[in-house]
Design a protein around this nucleic acid. Structure first.
Ligand SMILES: [Mn+2]
Ligand SMILES: [Mn+2]
Ligand SMILES: [Zn+2]
Ligand SMILES: [Zn+2]
Lengths: 140, 140
DNA sequence: TGTCTAATGAGAATAATTCTCTTTTAATAA
DNA sequence: TTATTAAAAGAGAATTATTCTCATTAGACA
């Protein structure tokens, strides 16, 4: 994702284009794999040493609210963020904090078909995500 | 779940049987639907007014570590707990913090079959959970 | 180029959780 | 039943991720 592209997305959403917002979105994209606010701050401060912690949190909220990034569900007390906006699933390592994307259209279609038939009573589905928990095999 | 049953589970795991542990496990079972530590504390203090906050957190950790309860993944800074140990899925309300269980064996089998064929490279699956996000329809 | 409003920065405040240390208690052995 | 002991509980302080407040700055647009 180029800076121009990020700039456009901000404009589309009616958000002011600021160096902080660009840096934060860039960081999430580049870091990839679901960084925490702290990860993002550490990364950004290399080139942008004066950014305030509160600014990062506020920008993250704004980006989430405007659908430019997503929060990732975890069972930890630390929020993680995702710049991959297409609907996808996650591989959660059962022994570490590693979370990887899992994209699988065949699976998406299977699920869609399944839930077209099998309705859940009193519930309207908007999105389905798999948490696939397991171990990454070191492919050394 | 009866107190005798809870007592047995604690003994099985080699955990000392204490009134606090019994009260906490009972609370999670009774409250049902994924209470926070605070929900649990509020509930317990009715009958057990002197239980310390730190005790609740320590007991929750011990119960999780011993496989008697589970943490529930959310995108919030507040942990939630689940006493339903059979593998099941969750319905997440997109406009509130409501989380309901979704049990569906047909779905489990479908997924099992699917991932038997379709291997994920470098990853050994241990468990799969669906996050089904949507809206609960008021069935007034 | 100036105006205006939204965004940022700095640091204090908050809230969930964890830690430290003392006291209590469940398990078990005598 | 009582004594022993290690583990658990209680109290409150500490920590840490996040939020808030308020003064300053800087994009957007006229
Ligand atoms: Mn918090
Ligand atoms: Mn926290
Ligand atoms: Zn992702
Ligand atoms: Zn559940």
């Amino acid at each position: 994702m180029k800076v121009g592209e990020i700039r456009n997305k901000l404009i589309e959403k009616g958000l002011k284009v600021t160096p902080q917002r660009i840096a934060i979105l860039e960081a999430i994209v580049k870091l990839n794999n679901h960084p925490t606010a702290e990860n993002i701050i550490d990364y950004i401060r290399k080139n942008h040493p004066n950014i305030a912690t509160a600014t990062v949190y506020k920008v993250l909220d704004a980006l989430v609210e405007n659908g430019l990034i997503k929060k990732v569900k975890t069972e930890k007390d630390i929020m993680r963020y995702d710049a991959v906006m297409e609907s996808h699933h996650h591989l959660y390592c059962s022994e570490s904090d590693r979370i990887e994307d899992y994209k699988d259209n065949e699976l998406n279609e299977l699920l869609e078909k399944y839930f077209e038939k099998k309705k859940i009573p009193d519930f309207k589905i908007e999105d389905i995500k798999l948490q696939i928990i397991g171990k990454f095999i070191k492919n050394k």
